[in-house]
């Protein structure tokens, strides 16, 4: 396993609102995640796990503390710089799939490539390859409405990996899926982690899903309460 530090959090706090309505979602989190890890973040709702996830995914900035992603001080980056970081290093999978409606699977997968200046041919090739990896080569032309939930999530995973990111962030990737499909998706994620050495950071509240990860971090009241390496 690559033991290089991928993510390093030091004293991260996140404050929402001001005055009486202020709410401290994270109260000084320290965390190190190394390259190639498969981490599940768990915790009851309101524990701060989603906030932590958004910070890790560079979608949000901390109120205080330092966050280094591969040595880059993320808290010093502006909005556009964070966009570029996400563009080049990160992939995202959402609970609600968040595919573009009335758009074919292939075009959905191509979407991140549009911001990277690839040619049409390159985009097609890369998107086809990504769809093949999630075993959806035969559904290229289908729109999300024509796909099952599991298939939609697989398209979303293809979209996340098409740019060949180092790190994949998955926010409740199985939240909208039945148990059989959940197994399918988790197998896929595990394969991506073990075969392609993509680091995966996943938020979930299901124990079985978290069981697929090699490390489970429990968040409670804005702090890491428990951090276990399972395998």
């Amino acid at each position: 396993m690559n033991s290089e530090k991928l993510i390093e959090l030091q004293g991260i706090t996140k404050l929402y609102g001001t005055g009486d309505a202020a709410f401290l979602a994270l109260r000084g989190v320290d965390l190190v995640i190394r390259g190639g890890e498969f981490v599940a973040i768990m915790g009851p709702s309101g524990s701060g796990k989603s906030t932590l996830m958004n910070l890790l995914g560079c979608l949000d900035t901390p109120t205080a503390g330092s966050y280094r992603f591969k040595g880059i001080e993320v808290e010093r980056l502006n909005k556009d710089q964070r966009s570029l970081l996400r563009r080049h290093a990160l992939g995202f999978i959402f609970q609600g799939f968040n595919l573009l409606a009335r758009t074919s699977a292939l075009e959905n997968v191509e979407l991140p490539l549009l911001y990277r200046g690839y040619t049409r041919k390159q985009r097609h090739e890369m998107a086809r390859e990504a769809l093949a990896q999630v075993s959806l080569s035969d559904k290229e032309r289908n729109t999300p409405a024509e796909l099952s939930g599991g298939q939609q999530q697989r398209v979303a995973i293809a979209r996340a990996i098409v740019t060949r990111p180092d790190t994949l962030f998955a926010d409740e990737p199985t939240g909208n899926l039945d148990s059989k499909t959940t197994v399918e998706i988790m197998d896929l994620l595990r394969k991506l982690n073990s075969e392609r050495h993509i680091s995966i950071i996943m938020v979930t509240h299901e124990d079985e899903v978290a069981g697929c990860a090699r490390r489970i971090i429990n968040v409670r009241d804005g702090l890491i309460s428990d951090d276990v390496v399972t395998r």
Partner: peptide, 19 residues
């Protein structure tokens, strides 16, 4: 509504606001 989500997706996968 639909487009706001779409903008969210685009931003999340690395589009800059000005793009």
């Amino acid at each position: 509504t639909e487009r706001t989500r779409e903008i969210g997706i685009r931003l999340a996968i690395g589009a800059r606001a000005r793009e």
